[in-house]
């Protein structure tokens, strides 16, 4: 009893520190279905008007096309990241590779130092190979940026698979490829799953690459859509509307987070522990 009482100040302090986040996310939910009188943050009326953009393209432009594009964008990135990380991570964890040390260090440096700084170089590479202003180009770049993390995570998961499993597989007459596919890959499923979740959330939220590498293209993802909608100079200047679009945009992430909280927390923290 005394123990619980003495924790009250601590909980209060924590609550105070968390207040900005709590307020922001609380109002993200509340504001999408209410109106507030001018000069006040406290809503006084319930309304569904802010969600009209879902059915009426005149409000902010069609939202469904960007949604489908974003789904496609995310799915492609997840697929690339999974395939390349699962093979690359395995090679670095278990196979004979020349310059292993150097490659591993390289992956780690690329991971630790996200080279969005190199966007100028990326921009030029895409121009040279003709993928500038295309969805494919942006997908490739985003997947590449995620790869060092993915490879590193997968290497960590492969490292935990007992060597004996592979030795036993080799003894049983299976080729190294079969051993990987049928014996090792099933052991790292949790890793693949966590990586897929992480990549999906990351790709879903990506804004800069589509904006910079495909500025005048005919596709829009939800991030660029939301940014266009919430432009302060737009005719639709209305934070309740921005938040509705934003909440719509974030719903899939919230759903994933609600279902897979444990795994996500692990990869967001543990993933970088090396």
């Amino acid at each position: 009893m005394r123990r619980t009482l003495s924790l009250w100040p601590l909980a209060l302090l924590l609550a105070l520190a968390s207040a900005p986040i709590a307020i922001m996310y609380l109002f993200l939910l509340v504001d999408t279905v209410t109106n507030a009188p001018p000069g006040s943050a406290i809503p006084n009326a319930l309304t569904l008007a802010h969600w009209r953009f879902l059915v009426d393209p005149r409000v902010t432009g069609d939202v469904w096309r960007p949604t489908v594009t974003t789904l496609l964008f995310t799915a492609s990135i997840v697929a690339i990241v999974l395939v390349v990380s699962s093979t690359g991570g395995y090679a670095l964890s278990r196979l004979n590779v020349p310059f292993r040390r150097f490659l591993l260090a390289g992956v780690l440096v690329m991971h630790a130092f996200p080279l969005v700084t190199l966007i100028i170089g990326v921009f030029l590479v895409l121009q040279f190979v003709g993928l500038y202003n295309t969805l494919t180009g942006v997908i490739l770049v985003k997947a590449a940026l995620m790869l060092p993390f993915g490879i590193w995570i997968m290497k960590g998961f492969y490292d935990t698979v007992p060597w004996e499993i592979e030795m036993a597989g080799v003894q049983d007459g299976a080729s190294r490829f079969t051993v990987w596919r049928r014996l090792v890959l099933p052991q790292v499923k949790p890793g693949l799953f966590a990586l897929a979740l992480f990549a999906a959330i990351d790709a879903w939220g990506e804004y800069m690459l589509p904006r910079i590498l495909a500025p005048s293209s005919d596709f829009q993802v939800l991030s660029t859509y939301l940014n266009a909608v919430s432009d302060p100079d737009s005719t639709t200047y209305n934070f309740n509307l921005f938040k509705s679009v934003g909440l719509f945009y974030m719903l899939p992430i919230l759903a994933l987070y609600a279902i897979f909280r444990e795994r996500l927390t692990n990869i967001f923290g543990g993933g970088t522990k090396g």
Binding site: E164, M167, A168, G169, V170, Q171
Partner: peptide, 20 residues
């Protein structure tokens, strides 16, 4: 020869059963 071509059976200390 790699072990695939040797036809040996090995029992490992931790058994190395395929858990899945």
């Amino acid at each position: 020869l790699p072990s695939q071509k040797r036809n040996v059976g090995v029992v490992f200390q931790n058994y190395a059963l395929y858990p899945h």
